[in-house]
């Protein structure tokens, strides 16, 4: 009798384990932080050209859409998404803010001169610590901000799909 219940339980748990492993197979084992709506972080940074100090509290206006884009001249996917950023610049409901990540000033300037500057303002992140305040872990990453909240977050280069998503929300 005990043997029977025991083996029954065993089979049930085996089926359960099988099911979990089977499900687990189809999940990506790579981790990406989740897109949860969060408040924007507190930080202060220098601006790219003027080298003026800026604080996050009085930087963003309440009823304005902002797109924060983390980029660097050495990052190849950044070149890939650049045309999209230029197109987004033409939307006047949206303000593009660049966060220049661990870059060399001269080569960053060259990058902008050559490909065009989509940003209204560029902030400096020389040691990568500001990107961490934003919860980013690589370049490029992009955040859509409204009323001091992160509305959307994109890890990796923007594409047509993300472009449409942004346009849809701003409307």
């Amino acid at each position: 009798m005990i043997n029977k219940t025991f083996s029954f339980l065993f089979v049930i748990s085996l089926v359960f384990i099988f099911f979990i492993f089977y499900k687990g197979l189809n999940k990506s084992s790579l981790y990406e932080p989740k897109n949860e709506i969060k408040n924007i972080p507190k930080f202060s940074a220098l601006t790219f050209f003027e080298k003026k100090k800026i604080n996050s509290e009085n930087f963003f206006e309440q009823n304005e859409y902002y797109l924060i884009n983390i980029w660097a001249s050495w990052c190849l996917p950044c070149r890939e998404e650049h045309p999209l950023l230029l197109r987004l610049r033409d939307n006047d409901k949206l303000k593009l803010i660049g966060l220049n990540y661990k870059d060399n000033f001269e080569s960053a300037k060259k990058f902008l001169n050559k490909l065009g500057n989509p940003y209204e303002k560029i902030l400096l992140d020389e040691d990568g610590t500001k990107a961490i305040e934003w919860g980013a872990f690589g370049v490029p990453e992009t955040f859509l901000i409204y009323q001091n909240k992160i509305v959307l977050k994109f890890i990796g280069p923007l594409n047509e799909k993300s472009f449409d998503k942004i346009e849809k929300i701003i409307k």
Binding site: K102, D127, G128, T129, A131, I132, F137, G138
Partner: peptide, 13 residues
């Protein structure tokens, strides 16, 4: 990695 180097800096700060 770049991320790890920056994160070490953040922790030390």
């Amino acid at each position: 990695s770049e991320f790890a180097i920056s994160l070490k800096l953040v922790v030390s700060n």
